[in-house]
Amino acid sequence: MGRGVRIGIAGLGGMGSNVAVMLVRSGFRDLVVADFDTVDESNIARQAYLPCHLGMSKTDALASVLHDIDPGASVEVHDTRLDASNAAGIFSACDVVCEALDDPESKAMLVETLLEAGFTVVACSGMAGDGDANSIVTRRAMGRLWVCGDGVSDVASEGRLNAARVSVCAGHMALAAMHLAQGEEPRFCIQGD
């Protein structure tokens, strides 16, 4: 699985770090990952980091986790804040990019930038709280945009993110990215609104 395809992951929090682990475990061994943040104690509850990673950049910590799983994985790291001027260059060789940022305005900026540059994008919106796991879906929202989540559960109103619900949404993203990177339409995907 995954031979010859490269997948980008923008943001390495609860969504991005778990998507990366799922992809490498599934044989997708060529990743480009970007985040500007460092690992802190609150991240351990739902992100793919361990206490030994506290204080490390998320990019280095995640590369370490991924290489523990698969020493031969190729993980290109960008320890930087993504913006409209650098995103297309960072992910230039990627077949598909996963948008896994947390702030809604940053999400909108990145998705718009990547779609305008011609990328295929899997984004996430609505996975906060500990509500119904069955409300999280993969939806084709635009020609080259798939969105995973329930679309409404905002961390600003739900107050917290739950490891199990985050993992459900990360699983949706990882599966959609795997299918798209191989030129397949994601299966079990809702079309339109």
Binding site: G11, G13, G14, M15, G16, E99, A100, L101, D102, D103, P104, K107, A108, V111, A123, C124, S125, G126, M127, A128, A141, M142, L145, V147, G149, G151, V152, S153, D154, V155, A156, E158, L161
Partner: peptide, 10 residues
């Protein structure tokens, strides 16, 4: 027109 709205969390 297709519009996607994003909520916070990631």
């Amino acid at each position: 027109v297709e519009v996607v709205s994003f909520v916070g969390g990631g």
